[in-house]
Design a protein around this nucleic acid. Structure first.
Lengths: 407, 407
DNA sequence: TCTTTTAAGTCAATTGTCTTGACTTATTTG
DNA sequence: CAAATAAGTCAAGACAATTGACTTAAAAGA
């Protein structure tokens, strides 16, 4: 009698879940607003003064917040503002790219403390993982040398690599990294480091970074278009990263566009036209070139005819993708970021003007329809490191629910 | 000293929030899985047997669940399954369309008990609201005649109308209903009925209906393309409807597409080609024709050359939009539903084959990439009615948080 | 200067919900 | 007929937020 029917249900919650949520709410409020007094926190979170006092006391004991000098601001007892302690938590971020791997260590407020990278020789994941574990170990010990207590306060290891994930075969596709995807990477990293590990695609990581320390800070609805070796979008919806059913939401680099009617109804994927890979091809830069970023920067500063051509094509496709994303998501803003030089990002945005008409063109906008975000090779690694911080400290539905592994 | 700085923060929660969540979790589990015993509920929700017992007892007192005959299924004491009581709650749904308004009453499980419609004469919202309030009143008393206790168990009034909302001017645009949007409709309806009122656009409502009783039942990631007089998409992300910053997420009817290179780089909005409005133009049916649905059904059953032409154009644009939505959202499935006859929906889906390649084409799919959903003129009104039920009984983050109006 | 008003923050008791562990009930298995 | 198994109850306990009175510290007004 195989009556072990799968019953689907949302988890319930309990006192512990509520309490954990309230702690997160406090940290989040301090992150968003800067230092706040207990009374202010109570008003903002709709909790009672007493509750806030208890939680703040606990957070202070845990080294996550600290008091500032009290400030007089009118009648009544002066308030004692509390602020986040940057040294309250640390996280590691790992970016695995096609030819290079990068590791970053950040603290609770997203300040970068360590960054190291290594070239990834061809040879697939078996060899690669060993190199990567060494890199992580090296970053970790550098961090511990600088801040002995950091090890104890590490909340996790975020991993970012190019998507899409879990697709069928296609091992030779240079745009993906299929061999890495069928490898038990997360398990290897988890056992190798003893840390909690979570995976995002690189665009999602870039969005996570934008939300922690970049242009999306404090925004609940933002789309980050990430221009790297490939192209993707990180979706921040309702204040959280949206990943879709299989973690592939936002893989707009693979989107086709209807082209000339008749003969060739659909043109190549967006990232064949708008990505550093396509630019490298034009500039005849090897994708494995360690000085790729600098070369592109120089090329963008003084664009020759070919670069202008690329820029025109890329910005035209992006211009239209921006229109679509605005229409589909109704976001507060769209951010163009990347592992690309700021010059290039800025020029692309320039070339996209005027933006296509859309609902986003309303007159009452608070934010620009499109704006530049983080633009450097470390953006994805930073986002990878931001993920464990967000997972540990941001208020989110899943954090309230009882998990499989004890409350 | 204007020190009334706005402090942004997520609300905290308390015992009451946790308890409310757990009640919702129970109702949701019974809705998804059918009748379940207390022990099964405890396992599924990770709550203790005792907690489940208490909550079930309370829900039974409130008339939301009831026990079935106990069933023996192996060793041990027989289980007593509990099921939702359809008569446990009721909700009203109002659809305001361009030329007609519809009201539906549903019960807790989404069964339709009353449906009434009325033609909306031109004359704008002032006159319209009076007619609509009469319609609601009429439906309400029909409901009360059939089920005297329904009035006491009404959880709200859902309203659906064509978007987009809150756009600048453009009063003459026949595709929108601008004059209705600058009118304090919700306030009028709330005071006129004494019920909680909430607004969605029609595509969002259709998606809400699909989730309560249609093809999206139990799905957490689904996109509903709604083909009505206009065209839009309802986005179900993480099990909840996503509305974007201004409630306009999913307004894909307004999306442009890159067309022939050169002269006309961008073609008309999607809904100018794929909507009942465009079909009506071709068939020379007045959009206000009360027998519009039947006429379209007949036209779709025996398509003439013009209809075939329309079908070809519409399905081609939709085919490509499906590709985009799959790429952007990575959903479990896409549902094509509408206030359109099922024949038409089916034919459109047929014409869209073969679907464009995308990440969704993986071999391990559990659900079809695209499938038909509700296809009748009452779909939106049903979705409007489904919204208050979902708001009152579905587990969601916002339901846990302390609200502005007391816990 | 002195009193009143206002606001921040604490104290101690209370409340409400989930949890714990032992117990009862009812059925199948051997 | 005893042992095993599972559903469900009982009563006490744990825990976090709440409540209302209180203390502290400043500004405002007389």
């Amino acid at each position: 009698m195989n009556d072990a029917r799968v019953i689907r249900a949302t988890s319930g919650t309990n006192l512990g879940g509520a309490s954990a949520h309230n702690r997160r709410v406090m940290v989040d409020a301090l992150r968003l607003n800067g230092a706040l007094s207990r009374a202010e926190l109570a008003r903002a979170t709709r909790l009672t003064k007493q509750t806030v006092s208890n939680i703040i006391e606990e957070l202070e004991r845990d080294g996550l917040v600290r008091s500032q000098a009290s400030v007089r601001k009118g009648r009544g007892q002066p308030a004692t503002p509390y602020e986040l302690v940057p040294e309250g938590a640390y996280a590691l971020g790992l970016q695995i790219d096609r030819y290079v791997s990068r590791v970053i260590a950040v603290n609770l407020v997203g300040e970068v403390l360590v960054q190291k990278s290594v070239e990834l020789p061809p040879g697939g994941p078996e060899k690669g993982v060993r190199i990567i574990l060494d890199l992580i170990e090296s970053a970790r010990s550098t961090l511990s040398d600088a801040v002995p207590e950091a090890e104890r306060r590490l909340v996790g290891l975020g991993v970012a690599m190019p998507g899409p994930f879990g697709i069928d075969g296609d091992d030779d596709n240079q745009w993906m990294m299929a061999s890495w995807q069928n490898y038990p990477l997360l398990e290897m990293l988890a056992t190798g480091t003893g840390l909690e590990v979570a995976l995002q695609n690189d665009a999602a990581a870039a969005a996570t970074a934008e939300r922690l320390v970049g242009s999306a800070h404090g925004l609940d609805h933002a789309i980050c278009i990430y221009l790297g070796y490939g192209l993707g979008a990180g979706l921040i919806l309702n204040g959280e990263l949206y990943s879709g059913q299989n973690g592939n939401a936002g893989e707009i680099g693979m989107s086709l566009a209807p082209g000339e009617a008749g003969a060739r109804p659909f043109v190549a994927p967006l990232e064949h036209q708008a990505s550093l890979a396509s630019l490298c091809k034009i500039l005849d830069i090897a994708p494995s070139d360690p000085r790729l970023f600098d070369k592109i920067e120089r090329a963008a500063e003084k664009p020759n005819e070919q670069v202008e051509e690329w820029m025109k094509g890329a910005s035209e496709r992006l211009r239209w993708m921006v229109h679509l994303l605005e229409t589909v998501f109704d976001p507060q803003t769209i951010i163009l970021c990347g592992g690309a030089p700021r010059v290039l990002i800025d020029q692309l945005i320039d070339h996209m003007q005027p933006l296509l008409p859309s609902l986003a063109a309303r007159s009452s906008r608070a934010l620009p329809r499109i704006q530049p975000g983080l633009a450097n090779p470390w953006a994805v690694a930073l986002g990878a490191a931001a993920e464990p911080i967000a997972r540990a400290f941001d208020p989110r539905f899943s954090a309230i629910l009882k998990s499989r592994f004890g409350a």
